[in-house]
C-alpha cells in the first residue's frame, strides 16, 4: 500500500515535471525543469529495481543531456536566435492524447508472459560478469553495444564536421576564461580526483554490481569537463593522435575480440573461461573511449583558428 502511494507520488512528480519542461514559458526554465524531470525518472527506475538504468539516466539522461541543452541555450542567447512562441494546437493535442491512450491500453493488455529472466540466469555463469545487465550488454547482446559505442563516435565526427574550415586542427569548444581564484577554479581542482575515483569504481564494480562502462565513462567525462572549465586541463587539438587513439580504442578492442571470436566460430563470442577477463578489458577500453567522446560532444566543434 505504502509502495503504491510512493509510486503515485513519483508518477505525479514525473508528469508535472514533464509538463513543466515541455510547456515552460522560458527556455532556460524549461531546461531546468527537464533536469529535475531527469532526477524523478532516475527515482522511478530505482522503484523498478533498475539501478543500472537509474545510474545511466541520472548521468546521461539528466546530467549530460542537461549540460548539452544548457550549453545550447547559451549559444542561442549569444547568437540572438529566437523562434515564434508556441501556439496551442487542439487537433495535435487530441492526436497525442490518442497515442497515450493507445499505449496505455497496450500496457494494460500485455499478455502475462515472463521476460527473459530464466534464460539470462541460466546463461549468467561463464558470461564474464555476475551483473546480468553487464552480461547482456557485453556478451549476450554485445553487437548492440558495439554499434552503440560507435554511434557516439559517428556523431562526434559529425559534430566536428560542423567546424569552420579554418578552425580545423584547433581545440574543441570555445576558450574558457576562468578567474584563477574563483569558485569554479576551486571546484575544478577539488572535484576531479573525487570524480575520478567514483568513475573508476563504477567501471570496476560494473562486472559484479550495478554500474559499467557507460555510467563510469559519463562520470569521467564530467570530471574532464569540469577540469577543462576550471582551466586545469585544456582539451587537446582535434588532430591529436593520442585523442584519436583514445576515441577509437574501446570499439577497436571490442571489435578485435569479436573478430577473434568469429575466427573461433562465433562473431563476438567470448570463451567462458576467458570471459571475465575479456569483459573487464572491454569495459576499460570502452570507458576510455566513451568518456572522451562524451566530453568532446559537450565541448562541441573547434571554433577558433588553430
Amino acid at each position: 500500500m505504502i509502495g503504491t502511494a510512493l509510486d503515485l507520488v513519483v508518477v505525479a512528480l514525473l508528469v508535472a515535471a514533464a509538463l513543466a519542461a515541455v510547456g515552460a514559458r522560458g527556455l532556460f526554465a524549461g531546461v531546468v525543469f527537464f533536469v529535475g524531470y531527469g532526477v524523478f525518472v532516475a527515482i522511478a527506475w530505482l522503484r523498478l529495481d533498475a539501478i543500472d538504468v537509474a545510474l545511466a539516466e541520472a548521468a546521461i539522461g539528466a546530467g549530460l543531456t542537461g549540460v548539452l541543452l544548457l550549453g545550447a541555450v547559451g549559444h542561442l542567447t549569444r547568437a540572438g536566435a529566437g523562434a515564434p512562441p508556441r501556439r496551442p494546437a487542439i487537433p495535435l493535442a487530441l492526436a497525442c492524447a490518442g497515442i497515450s491512450v493507445m499505449l496505455g491500453w497496450a500496457v494494460l493488455s500485455l499478455p502475462d508472459a515472463p521476460g527473459l529472466q530464466a534464460p539470462v540466469a541460466a546463461a549468467l555463469p561463464g558470461s564474464g560478469s555476475t551483473n546480468p545487465v553487464t552480461s547482456v550488454l557485453l556478451n549476450f547482446r554485445a553487437f548492440d553495444t558495439l554499434l552503440e559505442s560507435i554511434v557516439l563516435l559517428a556523431v562526434l565526427v559529425g559534430v566536428w564536421a560542423l567546424a569552420p574550415d579554418a578552425a580545423w586542427g584547433g581545440r574543441p569548444g570555445l576558450v574558457q576564461r576562468v578567474r584563477p581564484d574563483g569558485v569554479l577554479a576551486g571546484f575544478g581542482r577539488l572535484l576531479p580526483p573525487l570524480g575520478l575515483l567514483v568513475g573508476v569504481y563504477l567501471v570496476w564494480a560494473g562486472t559484479k554490481q550495478p554500474g559499467g562502462a557507460f555510467q563510469g565513462g559519463t562520470v569521467l567525462a564530467a570530471v574532464w569537463l569540469l577540469a577543462s572549465m576550471a582551466g586545469v586541463a585544456r582539451a587537446p587539438r582535434v588532430t591529436s593522435l593520442i585523442l584519436r587513439a583514445a576515441l577509437v580504442a574501446g570499439p577497436v578492442l571490442f571489435l578485435a575480440v569479436g573478430m577473434a571470436g568469429a575466427l573461433g566460430g562465433s562473431f563476438l563470442g567470448l570463451r567462458p573461461d576467458w570471459a571475465a577477463a575479456l569483459v573487464l578489458t572491454i569495459e576499460v577500453g570502452l570507458t576510455l573511449s566513451i568518456a572522451s567522446a562524451l566530453a568532446l560532444l559537450v565541448l562541441g566543434p573547434p571554433e577558433r583558428p588553430a
Binding site: 533498475a50 539522461g61 547482456v136 550488454l137 549476450f140 553495444t145 559529425g158 557507460f214 559537450v298
Partner: peptide, 28 residues
C-alpha cells in the same frame, strides 16, 4: 527484474544522447 530491457534501455539512452548532441550542434 528482466535484465534484457534494462540493457536495451541503457543502449537507448546513449543513442538518444548521441542524436541530441548532433541535433544541438546543427542547431547552434
Amino acid at each position: 527484474a528482466d535484465a534484457v530491457p534494462h540493457a536495451l534501455i541503457i543502449t537507448g539512452i546513449v543513442v538518444k544522447l548521441a542524436g541530441s548532441a548532433l541535433a544541438i550542434a546543427l542547431l547552434v
